[in-house]
Nucleic acid binder design. Sequence first.
DNA 1: GGAATATGTAAGTACGCTCAACTAACTAAT
DNA 2: ATTAGTTAGTTGAGCGTACTTACATATTCC
Lengths: 377, 377
Amino acid sequence: MTTHTPVGRPLRPTGKFLQEDSRRHHRSLLLQQLFREGPASRADLSRSSGLTRVTVSDLVKAMLAEGLVAELGAPAESRVGKPPTLLGLSVDSTHVIGIDLSATDRFTGAVLNLAGEVQARHEVSLDGATGTAAVALVHALATDLIGMTERPVLGVGVGSPGVVDATGTVIDAPNLAWSGMPLAASLAETLGVPVFVANDANTAVLGEHTFGESGDGGLLVLRVGTGVGAGLVLGGSLLHGHLGAAGEIGHVVVDTEGERCACSRVGCLETVLAVPRLRRRLEEAGADAAQVLTQAGEQLGTALAPVVGMLNLHEIVLSGPTELLDGPLRDAADRTIRARTMPVSSEGLLIRTSTLGEDVVIVGAAVLVLAGELGVS
Amino acid sequence: MTTHTPVGRPLRPTGKFLQEDSRRHHRSLLLQQLFREGPASRADLSRSSGLTRVTVSDLVKAMLAEGLVAELGAPAESRVGKPPTLLGLSVDSTHVIGIDLSATDRFTGAVLNLAGEVQARHEVSLDGATGTAAVALVHALATDLIGMTERPVLGVGVGSPGVVDATGTVIDAPNLAWSGMPLAASLAETLGVPVFVANDANTAVLGEHTFGESGDGGLLVLRVGTGVGAGLVLGGSLLHGHLGAAGEIGHVVVDTEGERCACSRVGCLETVLAVPRLRRRLEEAGADAAQVLTQAGEQLGTALAPVVGMLNLHEIVLSGPTELLDGPLRDAADRTIRARTMPVSSEGLLIRTSTLGEDVVIVGAAVLVLAGELGVS
DNA sequence: GGAATATGTAAGTACGCTCAACTAACTAAT
DNA sequence: ATTAGTTAGTTGAGCGTACTTACATATTCC
C-alpha cells in the first residue's frame, strides 16, 4: 500500500469516505487475498475478509464481469458439503508497464502481468540525453512497451533517480538534469493511462516487499550502484519523508578521514560503498580483497546501526552486484550492526541480498501500479 | 492517529469497513478540525471535510446530544448572508487520565481536559516496588485520579518504560521487573474505562506532536534521563517497529572507545548522554563544561545523522533537563547532523528542546486516549 | 424594500452491506 | 435407497449513511 497519488484520475482532497470508497476497499481486500494466497472460493474470501458471503458474491460478480478474476472450477479433493468454486486472479487480464530510469547509460522497461512476471522487455539507449530529451526517451519507451502487449494496460510505473514527490514530479535528479519535472503528469497525458513515478530505491523496496521473500515487518532496501540509496517500507507502506527525500543515506558521512565525495563532503557512505569506488579499491588491494569488503561492510554497519535501533527493522536487503555484496561485506555489516545495537533490535533482523536481481526497480514500478490501481501489494 | 488497540472494547480483526466505521471516521474528521483549528460553523466544517452541510448537521446533532461539542452563538464580525452558528469542542465534557511511569522513584499522573490542559495532579512514591507491587501502585494511582474529577472519564493513557506492544502489554521493563505484563488489560478490567499503554518515549512524541509546536513532517523526540530513548511519529502516526521496539537508540554504540555500559557493551549512546553520566562528567570537567556538552552533542549528532538521512525528518525534539540539553549540546548535535547529511535531508530540519517540559509523557499518554477514543490528534 | 448571499433543515433517493431464508450439491449414517 | 447433516452460493427485505433537491431563515448590498 503506497500513498502515491495516481495521476490520470481525479483525486479526493479530503479524508472523507464514500460508500464507493468502501466498496473499492473491500474489492482490494478480496484481490489482495487472491493475489497473496492464490485461488480461493467465495466462502473462503468471506471468512478471510469478514464480509458476508452475500457481499463477497456481489463483489466477485463485478470482478468476473471485468475479467479481473476467473472461476477455476472445484478443487480436486472433496469434503463434506457442496464443493466450492475456486476463484483465481486472471493474471493476464491486464498488463502493467514498469520502467527503470536508474541506469546511467540507458532506460529499461518491461511489460508485466498481474503476478509480476515479465512478459516482454524493451530499452532505449540514453546517449547522454538529459532534460527534455531524456523525457522524450521515457515517453518513447513507454509508448513502445504499451504497443508490445495486446492486453489493456492497467498503468505505467516509473522508478526514477533523484528526489520524487508524491504526485510523481521529479524534484531533483542531477544526472538527468531534471528539476521540478512533472514526469507522471506529462506521461499520463500522452499515454492516457494512470502513471506513477517514484524514486528508484523506493520502487525497489516495493518490489522486494511484494515479490521478494520478505516478511511483514519494516523492510529496508539498500541500492548499491553508481550511487547509494535506500528505500523503506514501514508498517506496510512506503516512507516518503518530509520533503520526499527519505532514503538519502548515500551522502551520510561515515568516515571523517575518508575520501572526498562528489558532493564536496568527506567520507560519505558512497565513497566507501559505491560500485566504482569499491571496484577500484579492490583492484588496488589485490589479494587483500576480502579485507576491503570487510571494511566497507563495517562502515555500512556503522551507518545502519542507529537506523536499526531507531526503527526496529525486520529485514535489510542489499541490492546491487552480488559478487561484491554477498560475502564478506554483508557478513561484516551484519556483525557490526549486531555488535552495535541491543539484542531486542537486532535479534529479529535479517540481512540478505536481493532475490529479484536486476529487475527490482522494474518490478517495483509495476507494484506501484498494482497498489495504486488495485490496492494490491 | 495511532494504531494502538484500545483495550476495553471489542476490536474488529479484519480490514473491513462498516457504515458505522464511516460515520465514526467522519465524526473524527469534524472533531479533529475543531480540535486543531478551534471553533467553526457547520458550513465551515462542511467545507473543510468535504461532507455536505446536511451530513455535517446530522453528525453535529449527535455530538451536541453527547455534550462533546457546544454551540457558541454567532461570531462577532458579520458578512453577507445568514450568520453562522459557531461550534466548539466542549473541552471539559469528559476528562482524560494521563500517567507517567518513567521516573525511577515515583509514578506521576494527571487529570486533563480535552485540550490537554492539566486539571489536577497526583503521584505515588515507588519506594522500590517492582513486579505486581508496582502494578498495584499504578492501579491505585489511576483509581485516585479518576476520583479526582467529577466528569466522566474518556479513558486512561499510560506511558511506561520498556518495550510495550500494540495491545498495551509491557513486554519487558527491567527496572520494574515486568515481563509480558498485560497492564492495559488489567487496568481496563479494574477501572471499566478504555486503557492505552505505550512506551514513555512514544507517548512523549505523541504529546509533542499534538500539543507541542510541531509541524506535520516526521518528528523524533529523544528522551534523555536515567536512560536514553526515542519515539517517532512518521506520516502522522506512531512508529512501533517490528517487535514494538522502535526508538531503542540508547544502546546503539557511538564510541567504540567509550565507557562500559550497563548493557555490557562499550560506548552506547547512554554512556555519553544519560543524565547521571553527563552530570558526573561535567563535575569532573569543572571549567571545561562546555567542552563536555559539545562532545556529547557531537556524538549524539553522529548517531542521529544516518537516521536523519534515512527518514528525512522534519523535527528533532530533545526532552530532558534543559540546562544540559539546550546549549552547547544541542548546537553541537545540530552542527554535526548538518555536516554529516545532505542539504536536502537537513535543510528542512529543526532541532529544539521540548516545549512541554516535565509533562510530555503525561500529556502524550492523554493523546493516546484522545486519538484512540475520538480520533483526534 | 428587494436582490443577493449564506446558513442550516427537511424530505426523498441511492448505495452498500447485513440478516434470514432459501436452493444446490455433496458426504455419512442407517 | 433413504435420511440427516454440512457447506456453498443466491435471493429478497431491511437498515444505515450520505447524497441531492428544495426550502426556510437571516443577514448585507443597492
